[in-house]
């Protein structure tokens, strides 16, 4: 229960930073997706069940707070949490390239899931332009923050386990 509260607080902290602080560093309105990185790292460290749960919580928080199509982020983050969690037992968790590679995968996955949903909802956009303006900066931001976030999550996992 206590660990749930801690992870909940971490999630809220990540969202607060993502919406309150990182817009100051935004490029064309795009900044790092800390919730996605949190879900990814949590999934990699704790497995698919926890990954799905974390994805669900992060998605609910994001959808409810941002006022986007409800369920969109829940859906994408759940899938990413599950997929990251499903490889948790097959990777070295503290390796440098793990969060980097996982971030590239998670960001692309998240982007394309959301893009498909938006298309299915009947909205059209120029994919090439959108890739350049949205996906590329987001990918770069996420790659830069991937390792620090993953290291922080490793450290938190140790701390929570000790307690």
């Amino acid at each position: 229960m206590k660990s749930c509260l801690i992870w909940g607080a971490v999630l809220i902290g990540a969202y607060v930073l993502q919406s309150g602080f990182f817009p100051l560093l935004a490029y064309h309105g795009i900044s790092v997706d800390l919730l996605l990185l949190s879900v990814m790292s949590f999934g990699l460290l704790k497995g698919s069940k926890s990954g799905v749960l974390m994805g669900f919580m992060a998605g609910v928080l994001q959808d409810a707070a941002s006022g986007t199509f409800f369920g969109m982020n829940i859906f994408s983050k759940m899938i990413i949490g599950y997929l990251c969690g499903s490889v948790a037992n097959r990777v070295f968790k503290e390796q440098f390239f793990l969060p980097i590679c996982a971030t590239v995968f998670a960001t692309l996955m998240n982007y394309f899931i959301l893009a498909v949903i938006v298309l299915l909802l009947g909205y059209r956009f120029n994919l090439i332009v959108h890739l350049r303006l949205v996906l590329l900066p987001m990918l770069l931001y996420n790659i830069v923050f991937a390792f620090p976030v993953h290291t922080l999550f490793c450290w938190l996992c140790e701390k929570v386990k000790e307690k």
Partner: peptide
Amino acid sequence: VVVVAVSVFCLIFFAARGRFTVPLS
């Protein structure tokens, strides 16, 4: 997971069409 994902997927479309709103969320 599949059931939840499908449910959420349907939820997105219901929510987008205004047929579903999460109370107070």
